[in-house]
Each structure stands twice: as structure tokens, then as C-alpha cells.
């Protein structure tokens, strides 16, 4: 039996998925990227293999994706995260029409055609606005964990408007709001709104076709997902493990590549 690996090296997390020839997920892992992409890719792969109960030599082919894909020596092929996220989402949700992925360093909206093929995409600009990094910086400034952001914002009674999506300016704004004793949950909801508005604006280029899927680490933030659904006027589905959608797509491509 042959197995296939997909490794997604992102700015914050490195993720790996192992699938069998039929595309069934045998193991997966999410690890921190840290300062060394190659090491992070190896750590993610090792962990996924361990969970799958497999040895490295049982992996027939590996595809790497993500911004650090060039630094994955195990990979026979490197594919962009656009293609991998689309394939991963299409496999998990065969009716998917739009993928909204908010990762640590960038965010992207991917439009898929009826057959799951990418027909359009847009990525954010060269800044942290509208990315997980924006929320990470703000969480640190507010003294809460990333995992708490969603829960706190969902419990907010009201919302404080954040006027800037620039991480630097928004950080100053947050400091001012904290100094005025504005409730933290309301500030967080305002920050979520800023991210959602920024990313939702990207759909102006691609359009939105249902079913809409959110992936990436920020999809674990229920507060952002709720506001995004309201903003786009659609229901949004989130995979059980939104961080491994790209790695899953890469693993499925690895299986296809080996079959050629």
C-alpha cells in the first residue's frame, strides 16, 4: 500500500497530511513553523507519519505548498497554496464554490468552477492587514490568547469601531481604546470586523458562489466566521481542521502525481 504526503509550510504553522491511494486521510499534524522552514516541514511530516502509524519510506510521493514550499527537500513537486486549498476544499466539500482562506501571512479568496477547478483568485496585498498576523498582534496587545478571541467577541455586548486595518495604526488605536477602558470583547469584535471587511472586499473581484468554505487558522475563530457570514450574506462551512486544507490538497496532488 502506498501513501502520499502533503506539506503546507505557512508563516505561522506548518501542516502535513498523509493520505492513502484512495485519498483517505491517514494522519495529519499542525506544528509551528518557527525560524526554519525545512525543519518545520520535517517536524510536521514526522508527526503526521507517527499519527498514521507509518514510516517515512512508506510515503511514495510528497507535494509541498505554502510560502515555504521551496524549502521542503522531501517534496517531488511544489504547488501553490491556491491550487492546494482549492483541491482540499473541493474534496471535503464537493459543492464548494468559494474558499476564503485567512492564514498567518496572507489571505485569499478562491473561486471554483463547477468541477472544483480554480477559475479566479485574489490574494491580499503585501501587508498584514486582513491576516492572522493582524489578530495575533492585537491579541498580544490585549493580553488574551488567539484561541480566546472568538469566544470573547461572540460574548460582546456591542462593538467598538476600529478605523484602521493597518496593523501598526490599529495597534495604536487599540492602545487608546484600552486606555479609555473600552470593554475588551467589544474591541475584539471591532478588530474582527476590520479583518472581515478587508477580506470580504476581495470578493468584489472574484464574486461569491456558494457553498462558501473558510480555511486557514483564522477559520477556527468563530467570531470572525460569524461576521464573515453576515458580511457576505451566506452560510459559511468550516472544516473540522481548517488549517490542514492546503496540506490535504497537496497530499491529494501527490497521489495523482504518483498515478501518472
Amino acid at each position: 500500500m502506498s501513501y502520499y504526503a502533503g506539506i503546507d509550510v505557512g508563516s505561522l504553522s506548518s501542516d502535513a497530511v498523509i493520505v492513502d491511494a484512495a485519498g483517505g486521510i491517514k494522519g495529519w499534524a499542525v506544528t509551528e513553523t518557527g525560524a526554519h522552514s525545512t525543519n518545520a516541514a520535517s517536524a510536521a511530516l514526522d508527526k503526521a507519519l507517527e499519527r498514521a502509524g507509518l514510516r517515512p519510506d512508506q510515503v511514495a510521493y510528497t507535494v509541498a505548498t505554502g510560502y515555504g514550499r521551496a524549502a521542503v527537500p522531501q517534496a517531488g513537486k511544489k504547488v501553490t497554496e491556491i491550487t492546494c486549498h482549492a483541491l482540499g476544499a473541493y474534496t471535503l466539500f464537493p459543492e464548494v464554490g468559494t474558499v476564503v482562506d485567512i492564514g498567518g501571512q496572507d489571505s485569499k479568496v478562491i473561486r471554483l468552477g463547477e468541477n472544483g477547478k480554480v477559475v479566479d483568485f485574489v490574494m491580499n496585498d503585501k501587508c498584514a492587514a486582513g491576516t492572522g498576523r493582524f489578530l495575533e498582534v492585537m491579541a498580544a496587545k490585549l493580553g488574551v490568547t488567539l484561541d480566546d478571541l472568538g469566544r470573547l467577541s461572540l460574548g460582546a455586548e456591542g462593538e467598538v469601531a476600529i478605523s484602521s486595518v493597518c496593523t501598526v495604526f490599529a495597534e495604536s488605536e487599540v492602545v487608546s481604546l484600552v486606555a479609555k477602558n473600552q470593554p475588551i470583547p467589544q474591541i475584539i469584535k471591532g478588530l474582527h470586523r476590520a479583518v472581515v471587511n478587508r477580506v470580504a472586499a476581495m470578493t468584489g473581484t472574484t464574486g461569491v458562489r456558494e457553498q462558501v468554505i473558510m480555511s486557514g487558522g483564522v477559520a477556527k475563530n468563530a467570531g470572525v466566521v460569524k461576521l464573515m457570514a453576515e458580511r457576505l450574506g451566506v452560510e459559511i462551512s468550516v472544516p473540522d481542521e481548517p488549517q490542514i486544507v492546503g496540506a490535504l490538497g497537496a497530499a491529494l496532488l501527490a497521489a495523482r502525481e504518483d498515478a501518472v
Partner: peptide, 15 residues
């Protein structure tokens, strides 16, 4: 143009 532009070009080619 940077790495992001290269990724977009690569994704465009794949598309």
C-alpha cells in the same frame, strides 16, 4: 515584486 507576486503568477499558471 517579491515572493507573493511569484506565488500569484505560479497560481495563475496552474489555473
Amino acid at each position: 515584486a517579491g515572493g507573493q507576486a511569484a506565488t500569484r503568477l505560479e497560481a495563475f499558471r496552474e489555473m
